[in-house]
Design a protein around this nucleic acid. Structure first.
Lengths: 191, 191
DNA sequence: AAGACCATGTAACTCGTTACATGATTTG
DNA sequence: CAAATCATGTAACGAGTTACATGGTCTT
């Protein structure tokens, strides 16, 4: 997956490892992440596969850099990957895994947990949404025909956040009801 | 993460590696997956850490099995993990990564792609939702106080699917509009 | 004067996937 | 009679994380 992500970024325009890192950090982080160490390693394998070519550029006043460009073979591979029919979904949600085992802790604690989670959103308000997508709009100047698709990924992020907040509210309702039921039971026993 | 998932399952009741595999496959797959090879490897490390203990049980008519139980130290570790404050979100969505680079393909092809994706839902109808959660309801008989939390994870799955379908519909709208705009442009040039 | 930015990577480790290997019993 | 279920793993590889290492320039 990461290989093809890097390939796609280089196909938009030539890039250094550092630039690829910043795009992952600033624009793709809500659906894919990558450490620099991993990026530089993958760049090596992509080059060995003949999908990208490297050009050493000397600089004054700042470190030299290696600029990578996509090769015809690399572009073919990118297209092949895009057409590949894998709709894997591959959900892997650590918060849900925790939720599944929360029965080990007292309800009050879990209620606090969900409240904290609900308030820790990536796009908490309209203002943030705009800045989060600012980088993409800047990139869109060079590739207006690709901007449509970038907009779609941002829309997903926003819809996901909204759904997550709604789910948290639902969970809080359920847990409050559960807590009340528990209290009533202990009162019954005490009578 | 997987270590603690396995620990949690064993804390619900003693289990063999095979049983753990079936729970991941049948009940947790919509938010976490695990191959058998990985499960058996993690069971070894969990045992070395002293968090679980192994008991060899001989059987007739079927292969012998190794039943794992959680130790007091293991239970402490499970609680510690649950209380740990990591709200990482850690989204990693291959479909969005593809979407980001779809500008390389013709719009018509991408429209077909989204239609296929929309129709390939995990919980496509009410009937399926019931069977998907049936296993959890069966497990709930032994642990009624934990069933609340299991129900929450199922609710997430359903809300996620719904959001995904809505997002697909939105994408299809946007792409249809984009296609029309493209067509109009080529007509202008031809005139 | 301190910290962020540009720019490169290596080493060690952990986690996840794919493929292979075995073999009896039960169900359709 | 074929396929699924029960039950165990190993080997090799690929992907992801953490920690470390360097050093000049630009901004606050």
């Amino acid at each position: 997956m990461l290989k093809h992500g890097i390939l796609g970024l280089i196909s938009n325009s030539d890039k250094t490892g550092y630039e690829i890192m910043t795009v992952f950090r600033d624009s793709l982080s809500h659906f894919w992440s990558a450490q620099t160490s991993q990026i530089y390693r993958e760049l090596q394998t992509l080059q060995k596969a003949g999908w990208i070519s490297r050009k050493h550029v000397e600089q004054t006043g700042r470190p030299d850099k290696n600029v990578f460009s996509i090769t015809p073979a690399g572009h073919e591979e990118l297209i092949r990957w895009l057409r590949e029919d894998n709709i894997p979904a591959e959900l892997r949600n650590p918060f849900l895994l925790k939720t599944f085992f929360m029965g080990e802790l007292p309800v009050e604690e879990n209620i606090a947990f969900f409240k904290a989670f609900r308030d820790a959103s990536v796009f908490p308000d309209e203002g943030r949404q705009v800045t989060a997508s600012a980088d993409l709009y800047a990139m869109a100047v060079d590739h207006p025909e690709k901007a449509v698709y970038w907009k779609l990924t941002i829309a997903f992020g926003m819809m996901y956040e909204k759904m997550q907040r709604e789910w948290c509210d639902y969970c809080l309702q359920e847990l409050e009801a559960f807590r009340q039921k528990q209290q009533e039971n202990t009162e019954d026993i005490q009578q």
